[in-house]
């Protein structure tokens, strides 16, 4: 519900890029890029490298199902990155990327994960803070 309200507010908050971004941090504060990097590279927390590759030379076996994260911070603004993590289906309804902050409208979620988003609001802000540093 909070997510729906947030996305709705982002969508209604006016001109141009509003459709394409969530401008305000979910927590009211910017995240920590170092913590964000650790989340992105952890395959059981961020899960990112299962599908994406990225500038992480120490990480073997990165996926190639999704765009390379290299340069993500140049291609997308902070607000665009936030929306793409919170609700990527708004950009592409057929995307394989999960909505990282969604807890409703899902089917047969295993008990251990039921009612929990993949990442907390704080974790998402950390990931956004890190991805904005990937400038080239």
């Amino acid at each position: 519900m909070a997510l729906a309200v947030l996305v709705f507010m982002a969508a209604m908050s006016g001109a141009g890029r509003a459709e394409d971004a969530i401008e305000q941090p979910l927590t009211g504060a910017r995240g920590d890029a170092a913590r964000g990097r650790a989340i992105v590279t952890n395959r059981s927390v961020g899960l990112c490298l299962l599908c994406h590759s990225g500038p992480f030379p120490e990480e073997r076996f990165q996926g190639n199902l999704a765009p390379d994260l290299k340069g993500a911070g140049s291609r997308s603004s902070e607000g665009q990155l936030r929306l793409r993590i919170v609700d990527p289906a708004r950009i592409n309804p057929a995307t394989i990327m999960p909505a990282y902050h969604q807890i409703e409208g899902l089917t047969r979620v295993a008990p251990a994960y039921r009612g929990k988003p993949i990442l907390t609001a704080e974790q998402i802000e950390d990931v956004v803070a890190f991805l904005t540093t990937l400038k080239d």
Partner: peptide, 22 residues
């Protein structure tokens, strides 16, 4: 299905031959 919200078809019809992690 699931928290990841993925169908079998999305991977095995549409993305076969590509790499999930390694």
């Amino acid at each position: 299905q699931g928290q990841i919200n993925l169908s079998c078809s999305q991977c095995h019809d549409d993305l076969w031959g590509r790499k999930l992690a390694g």
